[in-house]
Amino acid sequence: MALTIAEVEHVAHLARLRLSADELEKLQHELSHILDYIDMLKEVDVSSVAPTAQVTDLANVMRDDEVRPSLPREAVLANAPDQRDGMFRVKDIF
C-alpha cells in the first residue's frame, strides 16, 4: 500500500514529530514497504474471531482505596527541564 507524502505528514503531525522533508520521503517508502508486507494479514479469515488485547486473562484487579505514601514532590520535579513554584512549567498552550 503506497502512502502519499500528505498522509505521512498527517501521521507525523498526529505523533507530534517534526521531520525533515528528506525523512518524510524516506518514511514514505519504508512505511509503504512495511505495510505491503503487513497486508498478508488480509488473507486470514477473522470473521468469527475475537480480538486479543492482553494475554493474562486477569480482569478488574482491585485494591482498597486507601492513602499510601508517594514520592516527595521535589523528587518528582528533579528531572523536569523547567519548573517553578512546585509545578512543571511549559510555554503558553493557547
Binding site: L41, V44, V49, A50, T52
Partner: peptide
C-alpha cells in the same frame, strides 16, 4: 485485525 490474528 492484528489482534484477531493474535487470537489465532
Amino acid at each position: 485485525r492484528a489482534q484477531q490474528v493474535r487470537t489465532l
